[in-house]
Structure formats: C-alpha cells, structure tokens
Design a protein around this nucleic acid. Structure first.
Lengths: 219, 219
DNA sequence: TCGTGTGAAGACGTTCACAGCT
DNA sequence: AGCTGTGAACGTCTTCACACGA
C-alpha cells in the first residue's frame, strides 16, 4: 500500500490543528512547537506529533513546525484547496440558522441552495441562499454536481429525505436528525445529535461512575 | 471497586439505544433481540450486548430484552429520572434556533432562561424562554442552582463567556464555538463544531486514503 | 433452537521515552 | 539544549466464538 492511511480520529484533529495554525498565521508567527500547538488544540504533544507524522516529515528538530507550510499540508490532505458546494435540506428552525451560519463559508463550503417542502413558509431574514421546493432537488443536485448535503428536516422525514438524496447521487450527508439513517456503504453519513450531546455533558457532571475516555469529553 | 465503571463511548450509545427503545415502546413491542436493536442503532450486536452488560443482567436467553425494563434501566444510569434545568448563552442565529429546538425538551432538558449581551435585539418568534442580559447570569445560575449551560456565542467571546460560567458555578457546557475552551478539570465541556463535522463528511467522500474508524462516520 | 452473556483475541488509539537532528 | 520522529508499551474498544439458559 502506497498511501499512509490516516485514521479517522487523526483527520478530525487535523482540522482542529488547521484552525489553530490559521490563528497563528494571522499573528505572523512562523514557527510553532508541538507542545505549544498541542496545548492550543487541547491534545497531548505526543499525539500531535504522531498525527503530523502522517503528513510526512515537516518539523525541524530543535525548532518546531513551520506554520504556513504545515497549514498548507493539512489543507492538501483534507482536500480544502477549493470551495465545496453544499445544499441544505429542511429549512426549519435549525436549517434557517445553519443558512445564516458563517462558519461553513469560513471553512470553505458554499451553500448553493436550500430545499423545503414548504419553501414559501421560509422566513428569509438575512438569508441570501435561494430556497426551492424539494421536488426540484434531484435536478439541482445533478445539474450542479453536488456531492454534499446538510440535512435538517424533522426526524420523522429524515430517512425519506435521505433516500431521495442518495437516489439523486449525494455522497455525503451531515445530518442533524436524532435518527440512525440507513444508507448504502458508498454514502458517508455524519450525525450530529444535539440533544444527545447535551445528555453526554449532563451525564459526566454527575458523580463519576465511568471512565469517560471519549475524545470530545473533557473529564 | 464496586461500580461497573461504564466507558464514555458506551454511555453515548446507551442514549441511542434509549431512543430506539422508546420507539419500540410506542409500537407496543415488549421484547427485542440484540440483533434487532443493534441494527436500529447502527451498531454490532456484540457491541450492544457488551454495552447492556454494564447495566447488569437484563436479557432472557433465547428470547431477548424486555423493552420497557431496559429503557428504565438506561434512564436510571443516565440520570434521566427528572428534568435537567439548562441555560443558554448567546442568542444569535444558532442560539435562537436552539431555543426553538424541541429536541432538548423531548430528552428531558428544560431551558429556563437565555442570556445575551444585547437581549433587546433578540427576535422573539415562538420563543417562550425569557432572554436576559448577561450581567444577570451569575445571579440566575446561583439562584436556580443551574449546572448545565449551552454556549452559542461567537468564537471570539467563547472563552470569556466560559470563564463567567465557570466562575458562576456551572459544571457542564455544551459549546458550539469553533474553539478549544480552557476550563478547570472539574468542568465538563462538550464541543460541537458544525463546520468541522461537515469537513469530516467532505473528507470521507473523497477517494479514501484513510481507515475512517471514527464511530460517528459510516465509511 | 434461539439468543444472551462473556472469556479471549484482535484491532485500534494513546502515551511514554529516547534516539537523533539542528 | 531543544524539539522532532518513532519504536515499544500500554490501555481501551470492538469483535469473535462459544458455553449456557430459556
């Protein structure tokens, strides 16, 4: 095998490192040590070095890592060289908020359009993304060669909407529905379950009866 | 050691199982096998049995698990017997949407109040949660004995707001800021980074150069 | 026979500790 | 001296496989 085969958890952390590096770039810092960057990212220095090792050899012993170069390398691995077109399905409470969310744009995603079963009902306040009827979705996906979708429909319709997305050729879905979506292996799904995340916090603040080794939970 | 010491990842999955079990309860199904429940939850049957093993011995060999009893047991472990009071800090795009989000209520959380630096500017559309000025936050937290907070302020003010929350006695924070928050060990933080989650999906739909073993990513 | 409960094995992820370069 | 890169140890999570009970 030629490729380094980067583990999923490392990919996740690379994104975090990238954020930190950009902040360093803004402050015109040219070099950063593994311990400094690790602290900013909230991880162990060893882990950071191991993660960066997947990218090849970048650091200079005795000195640290070149900020700009490293950021560039991560960007390349993550495939963030160019803008990623995205659509959003379900413009309710959450969907509308996500349309206004600047974070996606900032990280290189462009929401080209949104879809809803009742597009007329969507209150357009500061949203400059067109909202179409769901019926027009498949054609749009095909025409604009969209591969990524954000799904924020009510739980009851999540699977149904997913099926339509998959049928239309979508390859990746970020879902906010509190449901386990059934998709073919060729489609990537990432579920963000808001209530569940809150429940996790709630559990871990109780008198600890657990080991709490989850990466996202600081024990 | 007396307690079973349930791992963090198991806790996360228990929440998922609980959701599935409630759905089964609605359909008046009394018994479920590990394989059936595992499929609904999107996990391996062995894993499910292992997870449920932490709760004690519940299943009946040759038959399966009693739905209601099991749901009850999970609820007890997760400490979901009673309502959890929560506050929300930062009523912008996302914060406002979260206030309208029914999912929290449905999973046993009650958002008692929200806080913002400019409470007057908050558009109250279908929100029946009072929005106060941030200055009143510490007093409110103390008075109402709040332990949980949802943080949805802009990234630039996230750490500052966190410090105030911690100072006021908050023990758990669900943050939506794309920042690594620095908190004392006694405080639990769970960060949901929307752009980062989308980035993950984006990466995994590319020609796979990774192992993608992240629990939340279906490869 | 069917499905749970669980030892054992394996895969994976993290951390240590130190060699080696600047 | 300082810091990276990495073998090796360690700990954790997942999966297999099968004994055992209903």
């Amino acid at each position: 095998m030629e490729k380094p085969l980067i583990p999923g958890k490392t990919i996740y952390r690379l994104s975090i490192y990238h954020r930190c590096l950009r902040r360093l770039e803004e402050n015109v810092i040219e070099t950063v040590s593994s311990s400094a960057l690790a602290k900013a990212a909230g991880v162990n220095p060893s882990q950071l070095r191991r993660d960066l090792g997947y990218l090849g050899t970048f650091g200079t012993r005795g000195l640290g890592y070149p900020v700009t170069e490293l950021a560039e390398a991560i960007r390349e691995v993550l495939g963030r060289e160019n803008l990623q077109p995205v659509i959003l399905v379900g413009v309710g409470n959450l969907g509308a908020a996500l349309l206004r969310y600047e974070g996606f744009q900032k990280e290189g995603f462009e929401v080209l359009a949104a879809f809803d079963t009742v597009p007329e009902a969507v209150v357009i306040r500061g949203i400059n993304v067109p909202v179409y009827h769901v019926d027009e979705m498949p054609a749009f996906i095909e025409k604009s060669k969209i591969r990524l979708a954000v799904l924020s429909v009510p739980a009851a319709h999540a699977q149904e909407a997913t099926n339509e997305l998959v049928a239309a050729g979508i390859q990746g879905i970020l879902s906010f529905s509190p449901t386990v979506l059934q998709v073919p292996d060729s489609v990537t799904v990432n579920s963000v379950d808001l209530a569940l995340e809150l429940e996790q916090v709630s559990f871990f603040i109780k008198k600890d009866g657990c080991s709490s080794t989850d990466a996202k939970i600081v024990p």
